[in-house]
């Protein structure tokens, strides 16, 4: 039991350090998409929804599992879709310029 705790604690702390390192200076242009992208990543909580749904065995727990699955699915699906939509707009002008160049 404590072996497991220490493994998880080590993973937690090292992941925090990776998070601090990987997020060095971000250009302001990308701060809003980055926030949305990070928001999508914590949608990983959807995996937890699967795990608890497998354990549910009474009405209250089924309701909690449903809520958890619904909330997490909104977070993960909405988060990635929104981030992609924002980032897509950044490469669209470049793409259309290339297209124009090819046509003319």
């Amino acid at each position: 039991m404590s072996q497991q705790l220490f493994t998880n604690l080590a993973i937690f702390i090292l992941s925090l350090l990776v998070g601090f390192e990987v997020m060095s200076k971000i250009p302001a242009t990308l701060q809003t998409p980055m926030m949305s992208g990070a928001n999508a990543i914590h949608g990983v909580v959807v995996v937890g929804a699967f795990v608890i749904a497998a354990e549910a065995n009474n009405v209250a727990l089924y309701i909690l599992a449903f809520l958890c699955a619904f909330f997490a699915a909104v977070n993960v699906a909405g988060g990635y879709t929104l981030t992609d939509r924002m980032l897509h707009m950044f490469d669209r002008p470049k793409a259309s310029k290339n297209d124009d160049g090819g046509d003319k």
């Binding site: 497991q4 998880n8 993973i11 937690f12 702390i13 992941s15 925090l16 350090l17 990776v18 998070g19 601090f20 990987v22 997020m23 060095s24 971000i26 701060q31 980055m34 926030m35 990070a38 928001n39 990543i41 914590h42 990983v44 909580v45 995996v47 937890g48 795990v51």
Partner: peptide, 19 residues
């Protein structure tokens, strides 16, 4: 006891703080 939640959560926690 699910490591992918721990890793991704901590990553967002730290990166989000810097952001």
């Amino acid at each position: 006891n699910n490591q992918v939640l721990i890793i991704a959560g901590a990553l967002v926690g730290a990166a989000g703080t810097i952001l």
